[in-house]
Design a protein around this nucleic acid. Sequence first.
DNA 1: TTGAAAGCGTTACCAG
DNA 2: CTGGTAACGCTTTCAA
Lengths: 325, 325
Amino acid sequence: MNDVAAEAGVALKTVSRVVNDERGVNPATADRVRAAIERLGYRRNDSARTLRRGRTASIGLVIEDAADPFYSGLSRAVEDVALRHGYLMFTGSSSEDPVRERDLVLAFCARRVDGLVIVPAGADHEYLTPELDAGISAVFADRPSGSGRDLDTVLCDNAGGARAGVAHLIAHGHRRVGFVADAPSIFTATQRWYGYRQALDAAALPYDPALIAMGPPEPARVEADVTRLLALADPPTALFTGNGRTTVATLRALDRPVALVGFDDFELADLLGITVVAQNPAGLGTAAADLLFSRLAGNREPAQRRQLPTRLIPRGSGEGAFRLL
Amino acid sequence: MNDVAAEAGVALKTVSRVVNDERGVNPATADRVRAAIERLGYRRNDSARTLRRGRTASIGLVIEDAADPFYSGLSRAVEDVALRHGYLMFTGSSSEDPVRERDLVLAFCARRVDGLVIVPAGADHEYLTPELDAGISAVFADRPSGSGRDLDTVLCDNAGGARAGVAHLIAHGHRRVGFVADAPSIFTATQRWYGYRQALDAAALPYDPALIAMGPPEPARVEADVTRLLALADPPTALFTGNGRTTVATLRALDRPVALVGFDDFELADLLGITVVAQNPAGLGTAAADLLFSRLAGNREPAQRRQLPTRLIPRGSGEGAFRLL
DNA sequence: TTGAAAGCGTTACCAG
DNA sequence: CTGGTAACGCTTTCAA
């Protein structure tokens, strides 16, 4: 900017005015400055700008895995909202590791992002306190925080969705429904398990722990669990799967037709005829980002907790059974 | 940092030394400083650090769409490499819009990212010249640049992969193979079309423009085109589809069994029995990021152009025909 | 081992 | 309309 000022024969401050489209600059002077900028290939240094103004016009997004269709849909939605507000977005994948989540969040904060959208991997967010005190806004998406300050949170109706899905199977005559999902340490898995129990209770069906298979999200674990369930002496006649990844892994493990309803819609589920409880990843991202930007705009209301609805989409596998051939 | 110094009763510089783990600080003093940091909830401002040091330890990634499984896989791979090097990553989706690509890249540069990985939406990259002169490194992934300085580029073997896929269909007796893909303005689509032609030529089969359906990536367009091809008086007995999205859209449009080979592997393609020419999105991202970081480490060799192999995976649809039921 | 001062490239504030 | 100067929070350089 100094060089440009010298080149154009004006003061530094005048260049700043032109660069920032401030009014009160002689058009002729402005043109001279712009010409100098062009000649020198000058580009404003936003780091310095940021330092001086105290706002970086950037946000940080921490998700579980950028390559997972659910989170990449959420990610794209957050990005769109950010860009619409003129903000840039840092992205990081926590890989379901609380330490990595924390490192990413703190690294973003060190860059002085104005706000954060976090899909928490851990339950403890005490580490956020100094950052929040420093004025950084944060919104939790998909899962709530287990500790720390009460913060804006956007979830989907996990229990309600699971309840509806399992009730659907029960309504079609099933009395033994297997439940395959992520480990109980994952908030959404536990919520969906609540929903499963509620549906059983509502139908006065017994809860059989032998029909529950919760664990790490690895496909191999899921496939082994499904195989085990189906090999029981008194096997389930239907399965409810706890998320998209689990549903897909389950499909691979089926060696015979079984009624199936899965939480999360996914690509080609319609072609395959899989009945699902759909949630809206993009909607989740948009809602979280909107909430964040309302905070950045000065909204000082108490922390909100929004819950997005789910939708049961019957496609055959929940009404009859899933069969590929 | 000033506040911490005051709180600890030392000079600013000493705090800086402690924060950066520089040696030559009395352990007792260091402890006092650390205690003050803890009390005040101090966090280093990396923007200021960046400004002073001239390196931001961040890169920018511009892809076509963060929600597309292909690009989200690439994205995750780039992120992993960046994090391993202690870098943070800005992400942006161009939506196949050259203007948006340019705006994103320039915004990243204004933040003084050290490097860029770009999946170009446009062919013109003259706008990068001042940035490159300023010392920012850039690597193109998935598609090359059509203009501007010669830069590192990582592609997959588009023509070779398509040739192999089409040859596979021909080897199974097909003499009329339809080609459904993105618009010719997209580099990969055109390259794959070359591969298609090469396979025909190698088998001495005539090229029939009526069998070519290239256009916007919208599913509706693809479905309409597929329907049109299959309704021809002399319809194709096999289809080659130009990428994952197109393959999926094509599946939806099929009203009868047709032999099918698709470029790009995708989730559940194995279950559905779709023969594909697989490329490796994560490998592409890793290669591009590795190349970028070698530049950031000082590698001054001439621009490289790497080509990653593709792999034909027979699963049934290319050997017989695709049928869901 | 510790500290003081200069400077990174901007913008805010006050003068002219 | 234009310009000077301080300040943002840090690291670099030099001195004690």
